[in-house]
Design a binder for these strands. Sequence first.
RNA 1: GGAGUCGUGGCUCAGCGGUAGAGCGUCGCAUUCACAUUGCGAAGGCCGAUGGUUCGAAUCCAUCCGACUCCACCA
Length: 750
Amino acid sequence: MDKRYDHKLYEEKIYSLWEKSGAFTPKIDPKKKPYTIVLPPPNASGRMHTGNVLMIAIEDLLIRWKRMQGFSTLWIPGTDHAGFETQITFERTLKEKGKSRFDFDRNTLYKKIEEFVLENKGLIEEQIRNMGASVDWSRYKFTLDPDVIETVVNTFEKLHKDGLVYRDNYMVNYCPICGTTFADLEVKHKERKDPLYFLKYGPFSLATVRPETKFGDTAVAVHPDDKRYKQYIGKEIEVEGLLSKFKLTVIADTFVDPKFGTGVVKVTPAHDKNDYEAGLRHNLEIKPVIGLDGKLNENAGKYAGLAVTAARKIIVEDLRKKGLLEKIDENYIHTVAVCYKGGHDIEPTILPNWFVKVKKLKEPAHNAVKEGVVKIYPKWQESKYHRWMESMQDWPISRQVVWGIRIPAWYDINDNKNLLITFLNNKKETVSGEIGKLSEKYSFEEIEKGLQTLIAPQSAKYVIAAHKPKGEFLQETDTFDTWFSSGQWPLVTLGYPNSKDYKYFYPTDVLETAWEILRLWVSRMIMFGIYLTGKPPFKDVYLHGIVRALDGKKMSKSLGNVINPEEYQEEFGTDALRMGLISGTANGKDFNFPRDKVISFRNFANKVWNIGRFLSIVLEKEGYKKYDDLLSYSKDMESKLKQEDKDLVKKFDQLTKDVNTCLGKYRFSDAAEVIYHFMWDDLASNYLENNKNRVDKDVTLSVFRHVYFNSLKLLHPFMPFITEAIWQELKNQRKYPEQLLISSSWPENM
RNA sequence: GGAGUCGUGGCUCAGCGGUAGAGCGUCGCAUUCACAUUGCGAAGGCCGAUGGUUCGAAUCCAUCCGACUCCACCA
């Protein structure tokens, strides 16, 4: 053995040793208990980040521990297509080539993104390997694998049959100039100076930047505690308008800031997110005044057909003439939402979206945690779950992205003449409009082939089917929210509903992930799990903290503080990185990247290595070349043992108990610490130093060898590479030289 | 604006009702000993502030100050 442990010489070889041995793939054995973890799939849009690395370290630790304890352990790897995020990343590469998503029809774009993702997927798989993850590669899944899509589509069909799916208006970020919707992620907030108009509104005066939305007002709101307006709450007021007099109800809502402007707000549910939500709370009518073309619609009377900015000027002028404009604040600075693509103003608009009724799904999911059928660790995260469950509204599951699983709804174009479509014709020109008119000019085939987007009015007739029905049907162009499909991840990875895997391994044991996605992901998995199988998909949820940068802030490209875990892996070894990260997160709280700890565990690795080196040198020197040459440790040696031998064995016994207890409670860093101190202080500094010159060499070496090998077992789930490396180096000193440490059995209490 | 987490030695953190702990760093000493990715030793903290509960508080409660994070972003 070399003087120092060099991780670069061992890690790759050892991983392939494990993989070839078949240790990663469990046997379905009814006599054994299963222990299952499904890896939260990293996004295939880029390399893994530090958080993913921590996740792998923790899950591999649990899996190796249980595997050594004799469970039939399964850890399923996978990657996620990550809808929006991937599509945005891909579009950046398109932009570099001077192109955009609008240059392609839907199917072509999908294929291009798919090629892009295939490259990234490979990178992530390699990283998972480099981390030493003992995942079962034979069960690897990607969220867009055909069988995954099939299950997700089936679930949607079932939801539909059960009456839990509906279409309804939903507020989206719509850009009238680009003619498409944008995700919140794609919307930029810009500070800008705009005139703030003070309008006379019946008995009130109120401030607005957008007088042109006046025709969509369906209420006026004040703060419930505002004494000035208390008498009006719940009453109808009459307002002099540009078109005619109209009546509005005064509502009270805390979203109104009494200090802003006059403390009175006009409520336009169709074109403002805040107002939209207030509208839902107060059951207000939604009255759109701006169409998808960015022009005022028929609700604006004589102003119909004018574009928003042009309309504003004319309307302000007319208000002034009528004496309804009280004053203008020209220096008002506020933030406006603009689209990332062209910087155009976003027009919050309501469009029909697909929804899942959540009530029936969330109640059992809520109860499962309340009743402890699913336990959340650390406990203090549980309140977040309950608060979310209590406030959860119906779930909008449709996304206006190409990269995802397309919603299996079909529109017969002959029954839905008013479908709004955008497509590329055979000359690659963008054409948009109502299908009724367009199909007079273009064949169905040409439209279908070049289709980019389709917007069906809420009244549209549709069929839900996995495959295209006979006739002139166009499929919905919206895709499922990523969380709709990944919410079924434990089921799809196990081959629900009929596979052997599903029957044996479901429900899984623990779901380990970042607390950030408790709401987005964990809650959905519990909902779907119970809905489809009657059982929650896992028994425990362990939520780890977020790894922040060295400066204590969240890592971000713009701050330039992103830590590339691979640099640490390269310099200090995978084991040190894993152990450092694990001991950084004591109780699931966020923590700064523990650079010092990574270094300290690199040092520890070397210590562990040198204990082994010492052992092998001494055994060689004393002539104990093979396992059988030396007295092997056993219970009936008791009479020969000295007090220090007994103490060491006793301490090791306690260590085993402590490690089991800590791991059972997901207290990983506590477990790491006790092993660290046992091996360094008790075993190396004390026992080894104090017993170097004993006369009864056979006894002390026997005790030492025994305790050391068993310590390696306890350490293996934390630092798999170095422990296996030593295990192999000391082959001849083991009873079963061919056995790998990964497949060896966990120490029993002695 | 709403919510959450955290303020403990120079740094990063553990402890969460009963005499202040770890790693790293610092300082001093040691060295052909398995290991300098080492050994031995030392210095260094009225546990953010102020009140309260208690026989007793870093640990529980309240208020304040500060840091970080998520969500909603202003008519």
